[in-house]
């Protein structure tokens, strides 16, 4: 069988074996239309309910944390930190299989995060914190890191524009900002500079610091590491929690 014939046959067999009922198109469309209408209606109703629920929850949390012990801020912050166990195991889906990873609590003044110390080390730098591979990668690999930086005087929407402009310089094909809820709630900017194994990738999250500022969490890796380092970074980020201010 020649290469050309082989390719034609590949196409032909796939077409022949993926036939579907003519009614499927309308049936699926009706379901899509119904689902969209339902969720639009539901969203409208829930918006108001949610606003009240959030207010009540926040008020209750503030009372529980601060209401009973006014004036003992540091003790309270310690109390909050104590809510986090120093070490734990978390499931981690890596390249198609699920493994369990030990993670260790790291505390900064404003947040806590669980770091996978089997693979990474946590470094406190001037003005930011950095999580990098425990063993330095050989030179042929591009940078791999997750940087956590706090900007205390700008809210996420303001920071977003600055970060977007900065990233565009290295990632001309930077995707539009996306609102995400996982691994963390906030804005996400993703850029890939090329389609080679070592093409740099950034996934940058901009989240509120719970006050008038933001955290910018920048993951840097390369395309081939999308199923490895990127998954491990996201997994650590899921455990990122803010420390309430006194």
């Amino acid at each position: 069988m020649s290469k050309k014939l082989n390719e034609d046959q590949m196409k032909q067999t796939m077409l022949e074996n993926t036939e579907y009922d003519s009614q499927d198109k309308e049936e699926i469309w009706n379901k899509i239309e119904f689902e969209i209408k339902q969720s639009d209606r539901k969203n409208k109703k829930q918006t108001l309910k949610k606003r009240y629920a959030v207010l009540i929850t926040v008020a209750a949390a503030v009372f529980l944390l601060f209401g009973t012990e006014a004036g003992t801020g540091y003790a309270l912050i310690d109390k909050v930190k104590q809510l986090f166990v120093p070490e734990k195991k978390v499931p981690l889906p890596i390249e198609g299989t699920e493994e369990e990873t030990d993670v260790t609590l790291k505390e900064s003044a404003d947040y806590v995060i669980y770091v996978d110390e089997e693979h990474y080390r946590y470094e406190e730098k001037a003005g930011y914190d950095l999580i990098v591979p425990k063993v330095d990668l050989p030179e042929r690999y591009p940078e791999v890191s997750m940087e956590i930086r706090q900007i205390t005087d700008k809210k996420p929407d303001e920071v977003l524009k600055d970060v977007q402009a900065e990233l565009k310089k290295s990632f001309p094909e930077l995707k539009n900002p996306e609102k995400v809820t996982t691994p963390i709630q906030g804005w996400m900017l993703k850029g890939i500079a090329g389609v080679e194994w070592n093409s740099p990738v950034t996934k940058t999250f901009i989240v509120s610091n719970g006050q008038a500022g933001s955290f910018v969490i920048k993951q840097t890796y390369f395309l081939e590491a999308s199923e490895g380092h990127a998954v491990r970074f996201d997994n650590m980020l899921k455990e990122f929690k803010l420390i309430p201010k006194e």
Binding site: E196, W197, L223, S226
Partner: peptide
Amino acid sequence: CLEINMNT
């Protein structure tokens, strides 16, 4: 589409 490099 698959977010895998082209050589792969």
